[in-house]
Write a protein that binds this DNA or RNA. Sequence first.
DNA 1: ACTTAAACGAGACGGTACGTCGCGTCTTTTC
DNA 2: GAAAAGACGCGACGTACCGTCTCGTTTAAGT
Lengths: 210, 210, 210, 210
Amino acid sequence: MPSDNVPSRPRRSERARRAILDATYDLVLEKGYAKLTIEAIAARAGVGKQTIYRWWPSKGAVMIDAFLPEGAGEETEVDLPDTGDLAADLKGVLRATADEFADPAFSARLRALSAEILLAPELAPDVAERVLGPGLRAYKKRLLAAQQAGVIAQGDDVDLDVAVELLLGPLHYRWLHDLGGITHDYVDTLVDFTLAALRPGATTTSSSSS
Amino acid sequence: MPSDNVPSRPRRSERARRAILDATYDLVLEKGYAKLTIEAIAARAGVGKQTIYRWWPSKGAVMIDAFLPEGAGEETEVDLPDTGDLAADLKGVLRATADEFADPAFSARLRALSAEILLAPELAPDVAERVLGPGLRAYKKRLLAAQQAGVIAQGDDVDLDVAVELLLGPLHYRWLHDLGGITHDYVDTLVDFTLAALRPGATTTSSSSS
Amino acid sequence: MPSDNVPSRPRRSERARRAILDATYDLVLEKGYAKLTIEAIAARAGVGKQTIYRWWPSKGAVMIDAFLPEGAGEETEVDLPDTGDLAADLKGVLRATADEFADPAFSARLRALSAEILLAPELAPDVAERVLGPGLRAYKKRLLAAQQAGVIAQGDDVDLDVAVELLLGPLHYRWLHDLGGITHDYVDTLVDFTLAALRPGATTTSSSSS
Amino acid sequence: MPSDNVPSRPRRSERARRAILDATYDLVLEKGYAKLTIEAIAARAGVGKQTIYRWWPSKGAVMIDAFLPEGAGEETEVDLPDTGDLAADLKGVLRATADEFADPAFSARLRALSAEILLAPELAPDVAERVLGPGLRAYKKRLLAAQQAGVIAQGDDVDLDVAVELLLGPLHYRWLHDLGGITHDYVDTLVDFTLAALRPGATTTSSSSS
DNA sequence: ACTTAAACGAGACGGTACGTCGCGTCTTTTC
DNA sequence: GAAAAGACGCGACGTACCGTCTCGTTTAAGT
């Protein structure tokens, strides 16, 4: 009779877990990441500090969980619209993103996550995968469809990962360093530039050196 | 014309100032920004804490000063090479930048500055102007020269600020979120994409809405 | 009248009980009372904390039980030797006691019990009765025999309880406050002083007031 | 000119020191030693915890200082009265002591100090010297005077330290273990017994062994 | 050279938060 | 239904730094 085949279930309190994530979410928006403390989270959540330390290794890890939607399993992938008009589709999504940047709640969250990555780089892969991942994959999927439709160039030299970064990188860079407004015009320009760069036959001639 | 005749000149100790900036610089590289404390700076510099608080409003302000080269007056602008081959010039500079990203000291500094901006957004303009500014202006200047040489498109719809962000934004984005390697191939691709986007007549046809 | 016929027998685990008392005993000797914790007892005993709280009201109560010999019912009273030579008998027992004070295990236990009494005075009667009681009664019984043999004074003014305290009080006082060595000479002196005080006709002349 | 001959004075805040000692004193009386915490002391004193840890190694050390009168330099020795009537003098002082034992404040202090010694035996010498010392020396001095007056026995076998313990040991023992009331009668009995033991020629005949 | 006022090093101060330990209660599962 | 296991809310621990505040002690200007 093989008895102890039970891996000692951790019997975690769902109530406490949700209270902690909610408190964290609210506190980041209210006070900002710089003022976020474990003690404040615990107090707001009506929870002992130890309960936080028991389940998360750091403040940043709590925050990442707090910023993810609840049912974020791996099957829940998002899709960009595909009307056949790539430029319009991208501009539609990026304009919505631009609007989000104007939302204090959104930028507070992004600020917090970015700061956390910089202070604790070991969290970067987790953020990249769980937070950015779905979005990046959605963009890439849409570009792939466009590629197959012949709207943008094909070939080994057309790296769609870079193409996605061409759309989002400037946006984040401008936001982070406050280099200019994140307007609809701005994101339209980004889309226009990016699609021009991806136009079939666009990058064929270019000098280089080692 | 003997103007501001300085009635109460602040007899500031140059020795202390340099010791503080050097200590800050060293500590960021050794321990990282997250472990940087005013007390550690003061101790390392052999300086009283008050001397730091007397001359800088915050830890971030000290850090910005610590990371700027000493003779960084406003007249010292840098220039990109101009061999006539825009792609080669850009790739040369960006490959050097890519190499810098591989340097722990460089990335530690960049990490620290970026974190500081996120935690204290009021410092962003200062960093944008004094740290990034010269670089951004140099890129823009080179693109402007290329524009005048007819290598890249002209016109109101060609925003060179955005063009510069197209080169640097993806680079920082990829670095910050650890999305992939910062290789010479990568920056070459960025230059190729960007120049393709900027090629005369590239962005003329594109749908849009709203 | 068949009284307490135990209708709801508390299915108490003897194994757990002994493990708890043993663990407590061992931990006090190893780490000292100051480091004794319920969690440590439970862990060492391989027992849930609740099992301790179920059967004892406090840490001190566990300790008292842990320090009593197992078959310490009320019928087990001890006796001092009675060779007819009171001084020799007392010195014999007290010298053995003095030797015990030199034993780290003994003094650790005494230290723990005394501390417990001071921190939780409600336990004092229990300790006085169950721990000290048998010893005190044995001394008093021996003195009573000596009194009846005419070796020490009789009368209402000869309080044998005080006489016993005269023997043991100084010993504990000296030990607790580390006022001097607990040697055979010392306890001999105590016995000599005490017997001198108790000698028939000793305390008849003495002034007093109020 | 030898400059640095100054031993870098610690610049300690007298205000904080007094506030800490007063708060400790008050808290012991109000809540008892078992509930005394560094945090409560700091809060009551309006002081940072670090200020306590900076100047005292432990809670017990603070307490000892808190319980000593302020001007407790080594020259401030106390004397027992000396009317020529030793028994009356001793009874007078011990009756006052008995009254103190009835005072909740006094017994709370004594309880706290005793507990501290038991939990941290390394403090025992300090307590013995600074707290008990003056009292013990005063008793011994009075007995010495009586000895020289011929009231009590002289000789090498008359250890006045033990004599003092004969007076105080039983008192503390009875108090600690709650063995009986600390009445005037009780202390009178102690004095009578002790003086009977010390009477010239009292301890000459007594058997012994080993 | 002498005076004098600031800046300086040192570090104590009242605080806040850290991450850990143990409390006594509770909940779940096993025997 | 007691027992093991251990999560829970809570309170205190002792430490690290914060930013402010004295302390003497340089130190450089302006007599």
